[in-house]
Protein backbone atom coordinates (compact mmCIF):
# COMPACT_ATOMS: atom_id res chain seq x y z
CA UNK A 1 0.00 0.00 0.00
CA UNK A 2 2.81 2.43 0.85
CA UNK A 3 4.54 1.66 -2.42
CA UNK A 4 1.36 2.64 -4.24
CA UNK A 5 0.98 5.82 -2.26
CA UNK A 6 4.50 6.85 -3.23
CA UNK A 7 3.74 6.09 -6.88
CA UNK A 8 0.48 8.02 -6.70
CA UNK A 9 2.08 11.04 -5.10
CA UNK A 10 5.03 10.90 -7.49
CA UNK A 11 2.54 10.99 -10.35
CA UNK A 12 0.66 13.91 -8.90
CA UNK A 13 3.65 16.08 -8.21
CA UNK A 14 5.84 15.09 -11.15
CA UNK A 15 7.41 17.96 -13.11
CA UNK A 16 4.87 19.86 -15.17
CA UNK A 17 6.68 18.99 -18.40
CA UNK A 18 5.64 15.37 -17.95
CA UNK A 19 2.06 16.45 -17.33
CA UNK A 20 1.68 18.54 -20.46
CA UNK A 21 0.53 15.40 -22.25
CA UNK A 22 -2.42 14.62 -20.00
CA UNK A 23 -5.43 13.76 -22.15
CA UNK A 24 -7.82 16.17 -23.82
CA UNK A 25 -11.23 14.93 -22.71
CA UNK A 26 -13.07 17.42 -20.55
CA UNK A 27 -12.74 17.44 -16.78
CA UNK A 28 -14.29 14.52 -14.87
CA UNK A 29 -15.29 12.68 -18.07
CA UNK A 30 -12.97 9.82 -17.06
CA UNK A 31 -15.13 9.04 -14.05
CA UNK A 32 -13.25 7.69 -11.05
CA UNK A 33 -12.00 4.19 -10.23
CA UNK A 34 -14.52 1.66 -8.94
CA UNK A 35 -13.72 -0.92 -6.26
CA UNK A 36 -13.22 -3.38 -9.14
CA UNK A 37 -10.71 -1.19 -10.97
CA UNK A 38 -12.86 -0.26 -13.97
CA UNK A 39 -13.69 3.39 -14.55
CA UNK A 40 -17.05 4.39 -13.13
CA UNK A 41 -18.30 5.57 -9.81
CA UNK A 42 -17.51 3.74 -6.60
CA UNK A 43 -19.54 0.54 -6.95
CA UNK A 44 -20.76 0.63 -10.56
CA UNK A 45 -18.73 0.65 -13.78
CA UNK A 46 -19.75 3.33 -16.27
CA UNK A 47 -19.39 3.46 -20.05
CA UNK A 48 -16.68 6.08 -19.57
CA UNK A 49 -13.07 4.95 -20.00
CA UNK A 50 -10.54 5.96 -17.34
CA UNK A 51 -8.12 8.88 -17.65
CA UNK A 52 -8.56 11.73 -20.15
CA UNK A 53 -7.10 10.12 -23.27
CA UNK A 54 -8.99 11.23 -26.37
CA UNK A 55 -8.95 9.59 -29.79
CA UNK A 56 -5.22 9.88 -30.46
CA UNK A 57 -3.87 9.87 -26.92
CA UNK A 58 -2.85 7.46 -24.17
CA UNK A 59 -3.73 7.85 -20.51
CA UNK A 60 -3.52 6.04 -17.22
CA UNK A 61 -4.77 6.09 -13.65
CA UNK A 62 -3.65 4.82 -10.26
CA UNK A 63 -5.98 4.74 -7.29
CA UNK A 64 -6.43 3.65 -3.73
CA UNK A 65 -9.77 3.27 -2.01
CA UNK A 66 -11.19 2.09 1.26
CA UNK A 67 -14.70 1.29 2.45
CA UNK A 68 -15.15 0.98 6.20
CA UNK A 69 -18.49 -0.50 7.14
CA UNK A 70 -19.68 -1.76 10.50
CA UNK A 71 -17.96 -5.15 10.57
CA UNK A 72 -15.67 -5.11 7.53
CA UNK A 73 -13.04 -3.01 5.82
CA UNK A 74 -12.48 -3.27 2.08
CA UNK A 75 -9.24 -1.83 0.70
CA UNK A 76 -8.51 -1.59 -3.01
CA UNK A 77 -5.52 -0.53 -5.04
CA UNK A 78 -5.97 -0.20 -8.76
CA UNK A 79 -4.36 0.94 -11.97
CA UNK A 80 -5.59 1.40 -15.51
CA UNK A 81 -4.52 2.28 -19.03
CA UNK A 82 -6.58 3.87 -21.77
CA UNK A 83 -5.69 3.60 -25.44
CA UNK A 84 -7.29 6.24 -27.69
CA UNK A 85 -10.44 6.37 -25.57
CA UNK A 86 -11.26 3.02 -27.16
CA UNK A 87 -9.84 0.34 -24.86
CA UNK A 88 -9.40 0.41 -21.10
CA UNK A 89 -7.28 -2.19 -19.30
CA UNK A 90 -7.34 -2.33 -15.51
CA UNK A 91 -6.00 -4.29 -12.57
CA UNK A 92 -7.20 -4.15 -8.99
CA UNK A 93 -6.35 -5.92 -5.75
CA UNK A 94 -9.09 -6.10 -3.14
CA UNK A 95 -8.49 -6.94 0.49
CA UNK A 96 -11.46 -7.55 2.76
CA UNK A 97 -10.64 -7.46 6.46
CA UNK A 98 -13.13 -9.75 8.15
CA UNK A 99 -12.95 -8.11 11.58
CA UNK A 100 -15.96 -9.57 13.41
CA UNK A 101 -16.57 -12.49 11.02
CA UNK A 102 -13.32 -14.07 12.23
CA UNK A 103 -15.16 -15.36 15.33
CA UNK A 104 -18.09 -16.79 13.38
CA UNK A 105 -15.71 -18.62 11.07
CA UNK A 106 -13.73 -20.02 13.97
CA UNK A 107 -16.73 -21.13 16.01
CA UNK A 108 -18.86 -22.49 13.15
CA UNK A 109 -16.28 -23.79 10.70
CA UNK A 110 -13.04 -24.05 12.68
CA UNK A 111 -11.41 -21.72 10.13
CA UNK A 112 -8.66 -19.27 11.00
CA UNK A 113 -8.89 -16.51 8.43
CA UNK A 114 -8.85 -12.75 8.98
CA UNK A 115 -8.88 -11.42 5.44
CA UNK A 116 -9.94 -12.33 1.90
CA UNK A 117 -8.02 -11.18 -1.16
CA UNK A 118 -9.10 -10.97 -4.76
CA UNK A 119 -7.41 -9.84 -7.99
CA UNK A 120 -9.48 -8.37 -10.80
CA UNK A 121 -8.29 -7.90 -14.38
CA UNK A 122 -10.63 -5.75 -16.43
CA UNK A 123 -11.01 -4.81 -20.07
CA UNK A 124 -13.55 -2.36 -21.42
CA UNK A 125 -14.18 -1.30 -24.99
CA UNK A 126 -16.04 1.83 -26.03
CA UNK A 127 -18.46 0.54 -28.65
CA UNK A 128 -19.81 3.85 -29.93
CA UNK A 129 -20.85 7.33 -28.95
CA UNK A 130 -19.51 10.07 -26.75
CA UNK A 131 -20.89 10.78 -23.29
CA UNK A 132 -21.05 14.53 -23.95
CA UNK A 133 -21.79 14.92 -27.62
CA UNK A 134 -23.79 11.93 -28.87
CA UNK A 135 -27.55 11.96 -28.81
CA UNK A 136 -27.67 8.40 -27.49
CA UNK A 137 -24.69 8.75 -25.20
CA UNK A 138 -21.69 6.49 -24.92
CA UNK A 139 -21.92 2.69 -24.93
CA UNK A 140 -19.25 0.30 -23.77
CA UNK A 141 -18.84 -3.42 -23.11
CA UNK A 142 -16.48 -4.91 -20.58
CA UNK A 143 -15.27 -8.03 -18.81
CA UNK A 144 -13.80 -8.49 -15.36
CA UNK A 145 -11.79 -11.64 -14.72
CA UNK A 146 -11.75 -12.18 -10.97
CA UNK A 147 -9.51 -14.54 -9.03
CA UNK A 148 -10.23 -15.15 -5.37
CA UNK A 149 -6.89 -15.81 -3.63
CA UNK A 150 -8.22 -17.23 -0.36
CA UNK A 151 -10.84 -19.78 -1.31
CA UNK A 152 -11.01 -21.80 1.93
CA UNK A 153 -13.69 -19.64 3.50
CA UNK A 154 -15.84 -19.14 0.35
CA UNK A 155 -15.63 -22.89 -0.31
CA UNK A 156 -16.68 -23.74 3.25
CA UNK A 157 -19.80 -21.58 2.99
CA UNK A 158 -20.92 -23.10 -0.31
CA UNK A 159 -19.24 -21.20 -3.16
CA UNK A 160 -18.44 -23.39 -6.15
CA UNK A 161 -15.51 -21.67 -7.89
CA UNK A 162 -12.54 -19.55 -6.89
CA UNK A 163 -12.60 -17.58 -10.12
CA UNK A 164 -15.13 -16.12 -12.48
CA UNK A 165 -15.77 -13.68 -15.27
CA UNK A 166 -18.30 -10.86 -15.16
CA UNK A 167 -19.46 -9.38 -18.46
CA UNK A 168 -21.27 -6.08 -18.72
CA UNK A 169 -22.74 -3.55 -21.08
CA UNK A 170 -22.83 0.03 -19.95
CA UNK A 171 -24.30 3.28 -21.23
CA UNK A 172 -23.52 6.79 -20.00
CA UNK A 173 -24.85 10.15 -21.04
CA UNK A 174 -24.42 13.68 -19.82
CA UNK A 175 -27.42 15.98 -20.20
CA UNK A 176 -26.25 19.57 -20.39
CA UNK A 177 -28.12 22.08 -18.24
CA UNK A 178 -30.69 19.45 -17.27
CA UNK A 179 -31.46 20.47 -13.68
CA UNK A 180 -31.43 24.17 -12.83
CA UNK A 181 -28.74 24.69 -15.43
CA UNK A 182 -26.60 21.92 -13.97
CA UNK A 183 -25.32 19.00 -16.02
CA UNK A 184 -26.75 15.57 -15.22
CA UNK A 185 -24.74 12.39 -15.72
CA UNK A 186 -26.71 9.15 -16.01
CA UNK A 187 -25.24 5.65 -16.19
CA UNK A 188 -26.84 2.26 -16.63
CA UNK A 189 -25.07 -1.08 -16.57
CA UNK A 190 -26.29 -4.64 -17.10
CA UNK A 191 -23.91 -7.23 -15.70
CA UNK A 192 -23.90 -11.00 -16.15
CA UNK A 193 -22.28 -12.54 -13.09
CA UNK A 194 -21.99 -15.53 -10.75
CA UNK A 195 -19.97 -13.61 -8.16
CA UNK A 196 -20.85 -13.69 -4.46
CA UNK A 197 -20.25 -10.28 -2.85
CA UNK A 198 -18.47 -9.20 -6.01
CA UNK A 199 -16.35 -12.38 -5.93
CA UNK A 200 -14.86 -11.94 -2.47
CA UNK A 201 -17.01 -14.90 -1.38
CA UNK A 202 -16.27 -16.87 -4.55
CA UNK A 203 -18.45 -17.68 -7.55
CA UNK A 204 -21.67 -19.66 -7.85
CA UNK A 205 -23.23 -21.37 -4.91
CA UNK A 206 -25.41 -24.11 -3.48
CA UNK A 207 -28.60 -22.10 -3.91
CA UNK A 208 -27.95 -20.73 -7.41
CA UNK A 209 -24.95 -21.54 -9.58
CA UNK A 210 -25.52 -20.04 -13.03
CA UNK A 211 -25.08 -16.61 -14.51
CA UNK A 212 -27.72 -13.97 -13.78
CA UNK A 213 -28.09 -10.50 -15.25
CA UNK A 214 -27.98 -7.71 -12.69
CA UNK A 215 -29.01 -4.06 -13.09
CA UNK A 216 -26.71 -1.32 -11.91
CA UNK A 217 -27.13 2.39 -12.28
CA UNK A 218 -26.13 5.79 -11.09
CA UNK A 219 -27.02 9.41 -11.53
CA UNK A 220 -25.10 12.48 -10.54
CA UNK A 221 -25.30 16.23 -10.90
CA UNK A 222 -22.30 18.44 -11.61
CA UNK A 223 -22.61 21.42 -9.26
CA UNK A 224 -19.84 22.93 -11.36
CA UNK A 225 -17.14 21.27 -13.42
CA UNK A 226 -15.24 20.18 -10.30
CA UNK A 227 -17.97 18.79 -8.05
CA UNK A 228 -20.24 15.83 -8.81
CA UNK A 229 -22.82 14.56 -6.31
CA UNK A 230 -25.03 11.56 -6.90
CA UNK A 231 -26.03 8.05 -6.03
CA UNK A 232 -25.45 4.53 -7.25
CA UNK A 233 -27.36 1.29 -7.03
CA UNK A 234 -26.05 -2.19 -7.71
CA UNK A 235 -28.26 -5.25 -7.82
CA UNK A 236 -26.58 -8.46 -6.64
CA UNK A 237 -27.14 -12.19 -6.97
CA UNK A 238 -28.01 -14.34 -3.95
CA UNK A 239 -26.26 -17.64 -4.53
CA UNK A 240 -25.38 -18.94 -1.07
CA UNK A 241 -27.82 -20.53 1.37
CA UNK A 242 -25.30 -19.83 4.16
CA UNK A 243 -26.36 -16.16 4.22
CA UNK A 244 -28.46 -13.78 2.17
CA UNK A 245 -26.78 -11.21 -0.06
CA UNK A 246 -28.12 -7.64 -0.42
CA UNK A 247 -28.03 -5.08 -3.20
CA UNK A 248 -25.55 -2.27 -2.71
CA UNK A 249 -26.06 1.48 -2.88
CA UNK A 250 -24.19 4.64 -2.08
CA UNK A 251 -24.44 8.42 -2.02
CA UNK A 252 -21.27 10.02 -3.33
CA UNK A 253 -19.51 13.31 -3.82
CA UNK A 254 -16.53 13.52 -6.16
CA UNK A 255 -14.11 16.41 -6.35
CA UNK A 256 -12.03 16.78 -9.49
CA UNK A 257 -9.90 19.92 -8.99
CA UNK A 258 -8.05 19.26 -12.24
CA UNK A 259 -7.33 16.33 -14.52
CA UNK A 260 -4.57 14.93 -12.32
CA UNK A 261 -6.53 14.31 -9.16
CA UNK A 262 -9.94 12.98 -8.17
CA UNK A 263 -11.17 12.48 -4.61
CA UNK A 264 -14.39 10.56 -3.97
CA UNK A 265 -16.21 10.21 -0.67
CA UNK A 266 -19.40 8.19 -0.18
CA UNK A 267 -21.85 6.84 2.30
CA UNK A 268 -22.12 3.18 1.37
CA UNK A 269 -24.70 0.59 2.29
CA UNK A 270 -23.53 -2.94 1.52
CA UNK A 271 -26.49 -4.58 3.26
CA UNK A 272 -26.05 -8.08 4.71
CA UNK A 273 -22.66 -9.73 4.22
CA UNK A 274 -22.08 -13.29 5.37
CA UNK A 275 -24.61 -13.25 8.25
CA UNK A 276 -23.62 -9.79 9.50
CA UNK A 277 -26.52 -7.48 8.75
CA UNK A 278 -26.89 -3.92 7.54
CA UNK A 279 -23.28 -3.04 6.77
CA UNK A 280 -23.03 0.72 6.39
CA UNK A 281 -20.11 3.09 6.46
CA UNK A 282 -17.83 5.47 4.68
CA UNK A 283 -15.95 5.14 1.41
CA UNK A 284 -12.99 7.23 0.42
CA UNK A 285 -11.06 7.02 -2.84
CA UNK A 286 -8.07 8.88 -4.22
CA UNK A 287 -7.19 8.75 -7.92
CA UNK A 288 -4.23 10.12 -9.80
CA UNK A 289 -4.29 10.44 -13.57
CA UNK A 290 -1.41 10.77 -16.01
Amino acid sequence: MNRWLVLLLAGLFAPTTALADIGSRLWATGGVTTIEGSAGGGLVPWALLGSYASDNEWGGTVSMSQARVDDYTLSVIGAGLNWHNRVELTVARQTLDLDKLVFTLKDSFGLEQDELNQDIFGAKVRLFGDVLYSRWGQWSAGVQYKRQRDFTVPSAIGARDDQGIDGYISASKLFFAAIMGRNLLVNATARATRANQGGLLGFGGDRQNGYEVMAEGSAGVFLDRKWLVGMEYRQKPDNLSFAGESDWWDLFVAWVPDRRLAVTAALVNLGDIATLTDQQGLYLSLQGTF
Binding site: W136, G137, F175, A188, E212, V213, M214, A215, Q235
Partner: peptide, 20 residues
Amino acid sequence: RSTTGPLLILLLTLGGCQNL
Protein backbone atom coordinates in the same frame (compact mmCIF):
# COMPACT_ATOMS: atom_id res chain seq x y z
CA ARG B 1 -35.00 -9.81 -10.94
CA SER B 2 -32.54 -11.20 -13.44
CA THR B 3 -33.88 -9.92 -16.73
CA THR B 4 -36.45 -7.19 -16.65
CA GLY B 5 -34.70 -4.92 -14.18
CA PRO B 6 -31.56 -4.21 -16.20
CA LEU B 7 -33.47 -3.72 -19.45
CA LEU B 8 -35.95 -1.38 -17.81
CA ILE B 9 -33.23 0.75 -16.30
CA LEU B 10 -31.35 0.94 -19.60
CA LEU B 11 -34.46 1.96 -21.51
CA LEU B 12 -35.80 4.38 -18.95
CA THR B 13 -32.57 6.21 -18.35
CA LEU B 14 -31.48 6.44 -21.97
CA GLY B 15 -34.84 6.84 -23.66
CA GLY B 16 -36.72 8.81 -21.06
CA CYS B 17 -34.06 11.36 -20.33
CA GLN B 18 -33.91 12.54 -23.93
CA ASN B 19 -36.71 14.91 -23.10
CA LEU B 20 -35.73 16.14 -19.69
